[in-house]
């Protein structure tokens, strides 16, 4: 693609992107509210989705132009792991880190699991307590997600077999805190603000973070189908540039971070679930949510290493193995570089 091609007017001027209420939807919200999409000549509507599977089906069927996706999702879609294969791409990363492991307050008190500098310590505390014959129910957000893989790795650190010693269930992130307070689940792994909100309501405590296990892992990406990217290259370039501009704006000042939080608190986005926060909690321990910084948004096959390894492990159950060319195609920086170097 030449530089001239990239400066072309977007083929679409109105489009709809899906999101799930999470702090790492921030770049999409900022790009819309601060006018970075508009500056690129695109009018973007954001559609709040209640479930990851619905968001995935809508992107696959063309009901959404693209969406905030869990980083393993475009690869799982391409490989046809959940349903009919649909070639998908992650042309830009939207966030790194951001996940928290939360256990109910009573489980923390009984097991002695607590947050420390070593994630293995809380996992071992839980593992020792489990020896007494209990089988807690732990929730994560989707089978092909960092939350699922991180939870398995963390449990393994405590000598806990994730298939036998605990019951793993799937719940969408906005349901986690209520499910925990009502005793439907005993703990969860999910993105912010849901972990800190559970602490705020005193129904659970943070015992470890995803960043402690896999520092700087790609967490959310923009996901589009291969055919959409092929048909609308200038629109995709415009999306990438707007999201990069949103990230740079966010990096500028603390006021911008507070303003971003105020936008996220609007009813169509995260609504009251962020009222306990004073500003976007970026790069604070232990979660280290990252939405800006050198190299944060550029897709990176290397950074997907741990995720691909876990995905490959789940493929063994269906007697398949990871398709390496598909991995490279999914997380190739080619669209990002083309959009940014003109």
């Amino acid at each position: 693609m030449s530089a001239m091609d990239m400066n072309k007017t977007p083929e679409l001027n109105r489009l709809t992107l899906g999101f799930v209420p999470l702090l790492d939807a921030a770049l999409l919200v900022i790009a819309r509210e601060r006018g970075f999409f508009a500056a690129q000549g695109i009018d973007v509507s954001l559609s709040r989705e209640n479930a990851w599977s619905t968001l995935r089906d809508k992107v696959a069927a063309g009901l959404l132009d693209g969406a905030q996706m869990l980083s393993p999702m475009p690869l799982a879609m391409s490989l046809g792991l959940e349903r009919a294969p649909c070639d998908a791409l992650a042309p830009i990363t939207l966030s790194r880190n951001g996940n928290a492991f939360v256990l109910s307050t009573s489980l923390c008190e009984q097991s002695g699991a607590a947050l420390g500098s070593e994630p293995a310590a809380s996992a071992r505390a839980l593992g020792n307590w489990l020896g007494q014959g209990r089988r807690p129910r732990l929730a994560m957000v989707y089978p092909f997600s960092c939350q699922h893989y991180l939870l398995r790795e963390w449990l393994a650190l405590g000598g806990i077999d994730p298939d036998r010693d605990v019951e793993l269930v799937v719940l969408p992130p906005p349901r986690m805190v209520t499910a925990l307070s009502e005793g439907q689940i005993d703990g969860f792994c999910a993105g912010e603000p849901w972990g800190s909100l559970a602490e705020h309501y005193r129904v659970g405590r943070l015992v470890a973070s995803g960043a402690q296990l896999w520092p700087e892992h790609p967490e959310k990406v923009l996901g589009v189908t291969h055919s959409w990217a092929h048909h609308y290259p200038a629109t995709l370039a415009a999306l990438i540039r707007a999201l990069v501009a949103a990230s740079e704006w966010l990096a500028e000042t603390p006021e911008n971070r507070r303003q971003a939080l105020a936008w996220l608190a609007l009813p169509p986005y995260l609504d009251r679930s962020v009222n306990h926060l004073d500003s976007l909690p970026l790069d604070t321990a232990p979660i280290h949510q990252r939405l800006y910084g050198p190299g944060v948004l550029r897709p990176d096959v290397e950074a997907m290493g741990r995720i691909a390894e876990q995905l490959n492990r789940s493929l063994r159950h269906v007697e398949r193995s990871l398709d390496i060319p598909a991995l490279h195609e999914c997380y190739s920086p080619v669209h990002f570089d083309a959009a940014m170097h003109q």
């Binding site: 209640n50 479930a51 990851w52 599977s53 619905t54 792991l81 959940e82 957000v141 989707y142 089978p143 793993l168 269930v169 799937v170 719940l171 969408p172 906005p174 349901r175």
Partner: peptide, 14 residues
């Protein structure tokens, strides 16, 4: 549009 979809969707896999 039900938030329960993810739970159902994952049953076969989990």
């Amino acid at each position: 549009e039900s938030p329960d979809r993810d739970t159902l969707d994952s049953m076969a896999l989990l």
